[in-house]
């Protein structure tokens, strides 16, 4: 099958290797990712501070580009997912807004219809691919690796756009189990925000949160923290490296672990390119 892939900022430019990994992982699952090349940055839940309608325009345009190809859309970043899903929700609920935005998009020859489904990595893997298919693709099971699942906020909150049960989610655990990992799900700071988005508004807030989360991973003797959000991953890797005394907890973006379990090398999976070294 084929799905429109929205890159956001995390699967191109300096992070283009993350897209390579993503594509290889989905190839093994029989899914072809068609890159939505004309899509732009979702605004990172920041452009709303400039003008909320700008966020709607940008993101309904992003969805319209997927609809123009007749494809549903796969978004692999929690924040991109939340922002784009919110724009969809707003336009689907408010006819006036939808019409106004479509008048704008008309100049680009585009129309937001509301027909494309929007998936995050998690619900796409659970509902479309299925855990069984993931299990079948594993050639190098993560046996004995204590993986600590971390969802990140924007796939669970707010409830209107959540892809799993916000109070007691399970999809990430199920995927990690399918990879053969030993899942350590019960740790104190599982639901604490990673602080990524406050790094450029209140840096200390970010560092305090990372300190708490990563130390609580240590407390349960986790080997690695795994997240389906590239931004949480960046916080755990790049921002952890900036801490005064980093707890030295390795982290991985979910598809990197999948790639590794599917038999790709340390380099191909991307695990090689972490600032906090992954001992594999």
């Amino acid at each position: 099958m084929k799905i429109g892939f929205y890159q956001g900022c995390c699967f191109q430019g300096q992070d283009a290797h993350m897209f390579d990994t993503m594509r290889k992982v989905f190839e093994k699952l029989g899914v072809e990712l068609e890159l939505l090349e004309e899509t732009t940055c979702c605004g990172g839940n920041t452009i709303e501070e400039e003008e909320r309608e700008l966020s709607y325009a940008i993101n309904l345009r992003n969805i319209a580009l997927s609809e123009a190809k007749g494809l549903d859309m796969l978004i692999s970043c929690n924040t991109c997912y939340m922002v784009i899903a919110k724009a969809k929700l707003a336009a689907d609920k408010n006819k006036k807004l939808k019409e106004k935005m479509n008048r704008l998009l008309k100049a680009e020859g585009l129309e937001y219809k509301g027909s494309a489904k929007i998936y995050h990595l998690l619900d796409f893997l659970r509902d479309v691919v299925g855990y069984e298919k993931i299990r079948e693709a594993v050639v190098n099971p993560l046996t004995g690796v204590k993986v600590v699942p971390y969802y990140g906020c924007h796939v669970l909150y707010p409830k209107e756009i959540a892809v799993d049960n916000s109070d007691n989610p399970s999809s990430l655990e199920e995927i990690l189990k399918a990879l053969g990992a030993e899942v350590v799900s019960d740790y104190e700071c599982k639901d604490v925000c990673c602080g990524y988005h406050s790094f450029y508004t209140d840096k200390n807030m970010t560092l305090r949160k990372l300190d708490r989360i990563l130390n609580s991973v240590k407390e349960v003797s986790g080997d690695i923290i795994a997240t389906p959000c590239p931004l949480c991953f960046k916080a755990f890797d790049i921002y952890q490296a900036k801490m005064e005394s980093p707890p030295n907890v390795p982290s991985a973006f979910l598809t990197e672990l999948m790639a590794y379990a599917f038999g790709l090398s340390r380099e191909e999976s991307g695990l090689k390119y972490h600032l906090i070294k992954v001992p594999v």
Binding site: P158, H197, T201, K209
Partner: peptide, 13 residues
């Protein structure tokens, strides 16, 4: 603390 908000969306939730 206007700029301390981390935008986690839990308040909306």
């Amino acid at each position: 603390g206007l700029w301390s908000c981390v935008q986690c969306q839990k308040c909306l939730h």
